[in-house]
Design a binder for these strands. Structure first.
Lengths: 309, 309
DNA sequence: AGAAGCCATCCAAGAATTCTATGGCATGTC
DNA sequence: GACATGCCATAGAATTCTTGGATGGCTTCT
């Protein structure tokens, strides 16, 4: 393989029309350039340039090589530029993954990031299963995953926000009568639950069991944001992260008593690279986005704001 | 500038997922690759890969660099391929130039060449002025020029063919009565001459002067092939290379007595490069193309064929 | 004839690359 | 729990490449 240095010499010679001039351009000596060219000619097996009394001139073979040589040099320079750009978050690509219910949390952060770093290409994969998210990070298919704690210890996780778990119900539902609902009150209540493939399913079951409360699942959905909607439609109550409650939600939203929050963490397979690290900083500064009127409902319920940071 | 070797290492690592494996791929040792990568990371100022227990994995910065690195390596390899291809006449480009009247000579050779070497891009420039042709070769704008001898000594010229200079006239013209026309008979004859910018103009004048004969120019044209046409149309006689007489020529064509030929040479600024040299060989083997019915006329005139080689 | 410009070659110094050997670390095995 | 395995980084020595200065041949210009 021809060395990049030799190709640089060839290009410089093509541009300046003389080996001596090229050497000056390259801040090198004439013999050095001459030698590089000789090596290149030996490697290609042809004469790249005709030596003439007043300098040198490219042969057709030399012309053919110069075009590619320029591309090679440009690409090599571009490689370090790209890497440096990615290091400074002014380029590169960032592959995110997140729990499905957290898209609404991530969206405003991504929008803000994209406004500030338009050169960074963002891709986002959603999943309802924590295991799948772990797998994406493990296999390197994602640089960063946003998901609820806890995560296995083999990962590096950074707490970026907390998210309240709330009760949603049809307006006027008995459970919604109280400003903050004790978890025990859910005993036997008809619950819009989640399908097994949705990570919330197992997590909720674990949480209920730990609290010794047994609601009555009446149906299951895999789509996180569908549960509160179905509950509001009269099918029962739903328990979900506040971020899964859309703006203009037609039902009632209540905090639990005591308030129930889960931690959201950014997961990387190891020490995050510069780009991911910077994104994580942005996540921490952004907090969780909660729809305005949900916030109003919750604020009416308890003197402590539900807004977390 | 990053060395090509370092970029190769990066790509190999990206492909194999491990420095040790990459070293095997590169027929090198693991520390060597490790060192190259460290250098590259120092140069880019970022971590290109995360070291993990079971190998390494690219960071976003690394991914960004790999894409360009591949391009750089490919382009560098392509540079030596291109040069080698040009050396073997299986690629590259050849820029030809020729006297306007010789396009018809060159055309069949180019066609044949292109059939055999379709990968070589051919460009052809025509000119009516020998000086301009010399200039094209001098300045390197053309790799090879086909033109009539003589050429200044500073060029390398290779005789590739001879071309007969013939007399053309309207059918039934008195001068065309004889099978071969002595040059002296042109004294005072009405001549369709060439415009000064056409190289034939000065050359014919010199030739006539040397022979001590003075035809009477009745008009001048810059387009070489136009002269015999105008002559046949009744304006007088024309003296031109036989290659300028088109197929289906409506007038009479006569050799001179003695036959008048001029040598065609391929001109390069120095020792021709492989591609040009090969083209010159083709030229020599091809000879001059003369339209069939002109050949018939000439053959009827003199027992010696006008075909040269 | 002499000066100047250009390139190739020779040779020595310097730099970069490579290799071998070694150690740290995590994982998997008996 | 000790051991073997596979991974990467580091250190030091050897080698190979690259560079620079000096020189000579060549041509052109003065």
């Amino acid at each position: 393989m021809a060395s990049l240095r030799a190709l640089e010499c060839l290009v410089a010679v093509a541009d300046s029309g003389s080996i001596t001039q090229a050497a000056r351009l390259l801040h090198s000596s004439q013999p050095a350039v001459s030698h590089q060219l000789a090596t290149l000619e030996r490697e290609t097996g042809t004469t790249l340039l005709r030596r003439e009394p007043r300098g040198v001139r490219l042969t057709p073979a030399g012309r053919a090589a110069v075009a590619d040589a320029r591309r090679a040099i440009e690409a090599a320079a571009s490689a370090v530029r790209s890497a440096r750009a990615a290091g400074e978050a002014t380029g590169g690509s960032l592959r995110l993954a997140c729990a499905q219910s957290l898209v609404s949390v991530l969206a405003p952060v991504i929008r803000e990031w994209h406004r500030r770093h338009p050169e960074v290409a963002i891709t986002l994969r959603e999943s309802t299963s924590p295991d799948e998210l772990h797998g994406l990070v493990d296999s390197g298919e994602a640089d960063l995953a946003l998901m609820p704690a806890p995560v296995p210890g083999r990962f590096t996780s950074t707490a970026v926000a907390e998210e309240e778990i709330v009760l949603t119900a049809p307006t006027g539902h008995p459970l919604a009568a109280r400003p903050a609902v004790p978890l025990e009150d859910l005993e036997g209540a008809p619950l819009v639950h989640f399908a097994p493939e949705n990570g919330l399913s197992a997590w909720l079951d674990r949480s209920f069991a730990r609290a010794g409360v047994r609601p009555e699942p009446v149906m299951r959905t895999a789509v996180t944001t569908a549960a509160p909607q179905l509950a509001a439609a009269g099918l029962g109550i739903a328990v979900c992260p506040v971020s899964a409650v859309s703006d203009g939600f037609p039902g009632a939203v209540r905090s639990f008593s005591p308030r129930w929050v889960r931690q959201l963490v950014a997961v990387t397979s190891a020490e995050p690279d510069p780009l991911a690290a910077r994104f994580i900083r942005n996540l921490r500064n952004h907090g969780v986005h909660v729809p305005r009127d949900v916030l109003t409902q919750l604020a009416a319920d308890s003197p402590t704001s539900a807004k977390t940071r």
